[in-house]
Structures are given as C-alpha cells and as structure tokens.
Simulated assay, not measured.
Amino acid sequence: MTDTSPTFDFAPQTRILARLVEGVRDGQLDDPTPCPGVAVRNMLGHVHGVAIAFRDAARKDLGPTTDTAPDATTQDVGPDWRAALPKALDELADAFRDPAAWTGMTRAGSVDLPGAVAAAVAVDELVVHGWDLARATGQEYEPDPTALRVSHDFLLASVDAEGNGIFGPVVPVPEDAPLLDRTVGLSGRDPGWTRQA
C-alpha cells in the first residue's frame, strides 16, 4: 500500500529562519519575545532544541533528544549558537527529504506520533517561532507560503469547542486578516504584539 500523505520541502522555511537568526544582535538576547517570560536567548535555544529533536524524529533516531519535553523558558543559547543553530536547521530540512521520515511512527517531545504529523508540528514550530523572533528583534518576516499554510491548518485543527488551541486560548483575529496574523492568533499570540508591548 502506498502512503499518500502530503509532503513538503522544509528548506525554504529553515532558510528564512536562519536569516532571522543571523539578524539577531548580541544586545537583543535578553529582550522579551511575544511569549511571556521568554527572552530572545531562550527562544533561540528552544528553536535549536526543536530543530535537533525533529531532525532525529525524522531519522527515527529515538533517544534523549526525542524523549525530552520542550521548555522554551529554560533553554538557552550555547556559545556557538550563530553557527550551530543554522546547521541544525539545515539538518532538519535534509532529514525530511527522506521519504521514510513521513511514514510510520516516530517520537518528539516524548510523544509518539506519525511521521507526517511530526512534520506538521515541526514546521508549525518554525513558522510561529520565526514570527516570535522577528517581532522581538524588529526584523521583517514573510514565512514560506507552504509552511505557513501547513502551520495554519495544523493549529486550526487543534482548536477545541471552547476556543483553546494547543498553545492556549486562541486570540480572535478577523477572518479577512492576512494568513500569518490568523495563524499567530491560533497559536495564542496577539498579532499586534510589538517590542514596546
């Protein structure tokens, strides 16, 4: 039986995120992000951990990196983050080029899930945290359109009858708002957040 799960290329979004990482100034590492209590340095550390965990999930290389629940508030950037984080993002994109990454079961964040679902979770992390970093550091952000659509659909499907998504209560956004704003709202963030907020 042939697997018909849709696949997509991670590379456009990982390259966009790598450029955002490159644009972070050292003096911004302690600045706040749209996630309460999470500084830029913690968000960078979280993204690094996410890239490694989902790279290993795609490879079905299960162990400490895939068994640990992510926590953006405690992760920090390492001393070599400017080189290590883009490298991990490249490796993540490369791992999902293997058709086997999209089939069967795997694990990430200590949760067992199908490979195709792991891909959707991973790209959602890249899209939403790209927005977090861009807003926190004053950079322009236009995510990869395919990644954005996958992220939006994944978050929309997770909303329950009470209006809660996987990251907390959904922030209402007009239906005619840009897709990125609607996706950010589904993630429990205010699309109007600024560094002065």
Rank of each mutant, 00 (worst) to 15 (best):
A69Y: 10
N42V: 00
K60E: 08
S110C: 08
L29A: 09
F8Y: 13
T106M: 12
T68D: 14
D26Y: 05
A177L: 10
T194I: 09
A58Y: 10
R59S: 05
R19W: 06
A122F: 04
L126T: 03
V150Y: 06
P36S: 15
G163H: 07
T103P: 01
G27K: 12
G165Y: 03
E175V: 01
V128L: 10
P191R: 11
V159Y: 04
E140M: 07
A83F: 09
F10E: 00
G165M: 12
V21H: 00
G23Q: 03
D132S: 06
L155Y: 03
W193R: 11
G168L: 06
L186M: 09
T146V: 15
F10C: 02
A51P: 07
T183C: 08
L85D: 02
V127T: 10
D31A: 15
T68N: 13
P79C: 07
Y141C: 07
V40G: 00
A72M: 15
T106K: 04
T103A: 13
A57I: 08
L113M: 15
A116E: 07
T194H: 07
S151I: 04
Q13C: 10
P143S: 08
D3I: 09
T73H: 15
P34E: 01
V50G: 02
V150F: 05
S110A: 15
P32F: 03
F154I: 02
P79L: 13
V159K: 01
P34W: 07
A116P: 05
D76R: 14
R107F: 04
G192E: 15
M43H: 01
T66G: 04
Q75W: 09
D80W: 05
W102D: 03
K87Y: 11
E175L: 08
D56Y: 12
L62D: 03
R97M: 11
S5Q: 12
R195V: 12
D80H: 14
Q28E: 13
P32T: 02
L186W: 02
A100S: 15
R135Q: 14
P36C: 02
P178S: 09
E140F: 12
P64A: 15
D144K: 04
D181R: 08
V123C: 11
T66K: 06
F96R: 04
R41I: 02
